[in-house]
Amino acid sequence: MADVVLAGVGGQGNVLSARILAEVAMQAGFDVKTSEVHGMAQRGGSVVCMVRWGDEVHSPLIPRGRADFLVAFELLEGVRYLGYLRPGGTAVVNDYRLDPLPVLRGDARYPENTLEVMRSRAGECVVLDAREVAARAGSPRALGSCLLGVLSRFLAFPAEAWDDALRRLVPSRAVEANLRAFALGRKEGM
């Protein structure tokens, strides 16, 4: 059983990544619950998805300080939802900064020490430029699958299950790039 928080910015694709992860956990026979965000928040706003699996899952929302994994699609969003990660949990972080409008306008400052803050709470913190890796795989938009690839190293699900879920849920024209991005992420020390 595990609880995973996927935090990002509307348009980065973390809703789809959460669906893929949840599908893999369900195919492994677990009870699964997710929560997603739709509608207004998706227009470039902060978007968080949660995925939980186990013998029996109650709440679709994870209690604070209880998540085993945090997948940060963007640095500030990772820090925003860091309180959900249990101390010593694992963070998978896309080393990417996207300034929100208040920062662009000069009304607020983007925190400088995001990686440091995440490392101080996580037991293990894997940091990578997922956009760059995904671009090598054929599309920078496949960055979510790259991050799932990294996450998959920590989970016991078989490679075929991931392959199957990606093929079924990713739009057909983007499947190959996402499979490659996932494979690159899954490979240690890529």
Binding site: A41, G44, E77, P100, P102, A108
Partner: peptide, 12 residues
Amino acid sequence: LSPASELPLRPP
């Protein structure tokens, strides 16, 4: 933990 309240907001 989580200094979330001090972070810049990201409105849509």
